[in-house]
């Protein structure tokens, strides 16, 4: 019984066991670790995503790190400002769909940093899913300055 069941696993369905990839480590990738963004300016956030089968959706999340609650995965340590209380922090949370069937795609989001928000340490998190439901994430420590 054990042998039979363990040998019968040659499924007709070819399952997808690969996660999509996501990176900002190329020339146009934005923002890079410890990047300083100026209030009122418009920036194009760019990241490269790929998948073995088909990409599905992506999201971008910008939130403050005034309390130093987390750090990025870029292997670089940015100088953080002293811990402070948020008054009117910038929050950017958007989800996007990727055109069906693509295996490579460049995320390209234009964001204008508002003038009335708190300056300081921020955290920028990208994430991407594929059609199977695998997800990859990357995050970058940045600053918003006057």
């Amino acid at each position: 019984m054990l042998l039979i069941t363990s040998c019968s696993s040659d499924d007709s369905i070819n399952i997808d066991e690969e996660k999509p990839t996501i990176t900002i480590n190329y020339t146009e990738g934005f923002p890079q670790a410890c990047e300083q963004l100026v209030k009122g300016e418009t920036y194009t956030f760019k990241a490269q995503v790929t998948d073995n089968r088909a990409l599905a959706s992506y999201s971008l999340d910008l939130h403050h790190n005034f309390d130093h609650h987390t750090h990025d995965d870029q292997g670089e340590t940015c100088d953080l400002e002293p811990i402070k209380v948020a008054v009117n922090p910038f929050i950017y949370m958007e989800n996007f769909n990727i055109e069906e069937g693509l295996t490579t795609y460049e995320i390209d989001i234009s964001i204008t940093i508002p003038n009335d928000i708190d300056t300081g340490d921020y955290h920028c998190a990208y994430s991407v899913t594929d059609v199977t439901g695998w997800q990859s994430r990357t995050s970058i420590d940045i600053k918003i300055i006057e």
Binding site: A56, S57, Y58, S59, L60, S127, T129, V131, G133, Q135
Partner: peptide, 12 residues
């Protein structure tokens, strides 16, 4: 609990 391809407020 099935992970879908979609996002809600940037969370899968």
């Amino acid at each position: 609990l099935n992970p879908t391809s979609n996002y809600y407020e940037t969370l899968q």
